[in-house]
């Protein structure tokens, strides 16, 4: 992969919680306008790695990193970078849907409002909801509470909420793990569609999902007490049909994890 194709890069990234390593020495390129999946057994540091891309780990007091994370070639952790600004350009969808206890409309409008959006807010909300394939279901009850939506709808609302700030990258941390199969399919379709305009990184422990939706796959595994490391990285097609490392093969054929 060419350097210019990568929107996000990590260089020798190690993350600590206190004195404990959660991931170590991660060097990885995330391709522009593609879907990159991060798979691996639970506890191997997938979420930790993902949260480095928008500096969400800053919110955990005991966490610290060494190494580099580059966004468009610029060091995300340089002291001149404001994490708030980063999160504005790199959106995130969480494992459990976390709509704010506000109306559907206000949830989507939240980001644009705090960021001083000056255009037509109603139109932005509509187009964001439409892109998240939720508009048809909620257009008649935009003012009702977001907490009344079903789990799958809530998760699509969270995606719409992330889209409304018009980010360049969307990070998704097991976005379907609390959803039923039908809602999961809807979100996977949505991701495929979004990948035309956005770069997406998705953490999943569902191998079929990684195989179905992603272009590239990273397999992470925890090694002793050094935390998660990249075992294998490449095109999804190749990883799933022709893994080079036997641990990858063992994992994707379901022999552990």
């Amino acid at each position: 992969m060419q350097q210019s194709d990568a929107i996000l890069q990590t260089r020798g990234l190690t993350v600590y919680y206190g004195s404990k390593q959660a991931v170590s020495d991660i060097t990885l390129d995330v391709a522009r306008h593609r879907i990159t999946a991060i798979i691996g057994p639970s506890g191997c540091g997938k979420s930790t790695l993902l949260r480095c891309f928008n500096r969400m780990n800053d919110l955990i007091p005991k966490s610290r990193i060494t190494g580099q994370v580059l966004f468009e070639g610029r060091d995300l952790y340089s002291p001149t970078v404001d994490p708030t600004e980063i999160r504005y350009q790199i959106g995130m969808v969480f494992q459990r849907p976390n709509p704010f206890p506000k109306s559907i409309f206000d949830n989507v409008a939240f980001g644009p409002r705090i960021n001083g959006f000056r255009g037509d807010l109603a139109e932005l909300v509509e187009s964001s909801l439409a892109r998240a394939a939720l508009w048809a279901e909620v257009k008649d009850r935009l003012t009702s509470s977001a907490l009344a939506l079903s789990g799958g709808q809530q998760q699509r609302l969270c995606i719409a909420r992330a889209l409304a700030v018009q980010p360049q990258v969307i990070l998704m941390d097991e976005p379907c793990s609390s959803l039923d199969p039908i809602a999961t399919l809807a979100i996977e379709d949505l991701m495929r569609e979004l990948s035309a305009d956005y770069s997406i990184v998705i953490v999943t422990h569902n191998m079929q999902q990684a195989a179905r939706v992603s272009d590239y796959t990273t397999f992470l595994m925890g090694i002793e007490n050094r935390g998660g490391q990249i075992i294998e990285y490449g095109e999804t097609r190749l990883i799933f049909t022709n893994p080079k490392d036997e641990r990858t093969e063992a994992y994707i054929t379901g022999r552990f994890g």
Partner: peptide
């Protein structure tokens, strides 16, 4: 976290 992730 949801709000921080939107750049708040």
């Amino acid at each position: 976290e949801g709000a921080y992730a939107l750049g708040s």
